[in-house]
Nucleic acid binder design. Structure first.
Lengths: 217, 217
DNA sequence: GCACAATCGAGAATTTTTTCTTTATTAAAA
DNA sequence: TTTTAATAAAGAAAAAATTCTCGATTGTGC
């Protein structure tokens, strides 16, 4: 199915915009709980400390129109953002590497939504195979291949040690996984059509430390 | 002490560069273990799938000079990067919120270096106060104020539930913390001189899902 | 020792992203 | 009903980041 039936009304957002969208979404959900029906870009900008025209440009990717003098309908915007980001779909995912970080993610999603749903976890450590973290059982790694045939999972979360990351990533690709959320520091070499989202913690630390050192001159 | 005594020889890197530097660092550490003495920008670029002139520009912020036909000295580069990113300093930090994510970070740093060293963890949950995660004891939240006076901690890691994040962040600032690594979705409103590094997981998911949906047209 | 090929480094050109400006629309006030 | 002020949206300008181009340098092979 190459053409999804419905016209693509939204544009391709630049990545900086894409990274800001979940921030808007979280803020909007908060103000909606407080009963806000309409909200304007200047108000959003004031709260999030960013330029109001930036807000307008960013939100325009969802296709939602605001009204002058009123702003956007909170409810509409939230739904358009969820739709645009894919947060309203199920987005089932496999996780490989149920160590510290892996089990944290598994437990985490029981409380807060990650935007994806981990439906199975795999590891090679016989100590953790068979245990449950949150509501998810940790299965033997080899089971991944079999399970991948039945369930149609497109997303893989990679929380293994660095030195096995490449191998596991290749296995994931062979299982039909299309996108990998990579928490390791490994630089994955995979086919071009595979989407790799690197979320190495040291990247954040680097930015933080540098800004801290700069601020201290 | 406003002037650090030694001349600042490095420039202020743009943020995209800053985020790439830890990737270079990891790669360089790997090739150095394999015995590589010198490495050129084209080789780095080929491995990391990025433009070689980008590599040259990025690495130039460290002040290290490469030689034509040879490239950079691996050892020198690694040290310059560690120095530039601050990874060779201790960077002691407090962590507040020893739930799933918090305890994962605590355990994580025992195996892999984060770039910062968590020296104490705090929580309000009497169930976890007194327990140890990795080599760190979880202390009662109120102890933070007392401990902050003695130790001179500048970095705070925020892994609390969203609804208490603002309050805890303010407490951190009152304890003398200058930089906050924020894992919550809360939008922190703090004095301008406080550095906030947001690392909300949904940001990464957003980019991943959008790219996945785009690729499926 | 001399030509040759590789690569750094600086700056120019291009592209992307952000910010500014203008116009048009809308609700509220007069 | 008319005027006024606020705001979205589109496009222009500015700034930032990336990619391209070229000259200088250095090691390798002839």
């Amino acid at each position: 199915m190459s053409f999804s039936g419905k016209l693509r009304k939204h544009k391709n957002a630049p990545e900086p915009t894409l990274r800001r969208l979940p921030v808007y979404l979280y803020f909007l959900e908060k103000v909606r709980e407080e009963g806000t029906i309409n909200i304007s870009a200047p108000v959003i900008g004031k709260n999030l400390k960013c330029d109001p025209t930036q807000v307008v440009k960013d939100l325009s990717v969802t296709g939602i129109k605001g009204k002058p003098r009123v702003g956007y309908n909170t409810y509409e915007l939230i739904h358009a953002l969820e739709e645009y980001l894919g947060f309203n779909r199920t987005n089932e995912a496999f996780l490989v590497g149920a160590g510290n970080l892996g089990s944290a993610l598994l437990a985490y999603q029981d409380n807060q939504s990650l935007g994806i749903k981990l439906i199975a976890a795999f590891d090679v450590d016989t100590e953790i195979i068979g245990t449950s973290i949150g509501s998810i059982h940790v299965l033997e790694y080899n089971k991944m291949f079999h399970l991948a045939n039945r369930l149609n999972v497109e997303i893989g979360v990679l929380t293994t040690p660095n030195h096995v990351a490449q191998k596991v990533a290749e296995d994931m690709v062979n299982c039909g996984i299309k996108a990998i959320w990579n928490f390791t520091s490994a630089i994955l070499d995979l086919p071009d059509n595979i989407i790799v989202q690197n979320t190495s913690l040291s990247t954040s630390v680097a930015v933080l430390l540098r800004r801290l050192n700069d601020s201290e001159k």
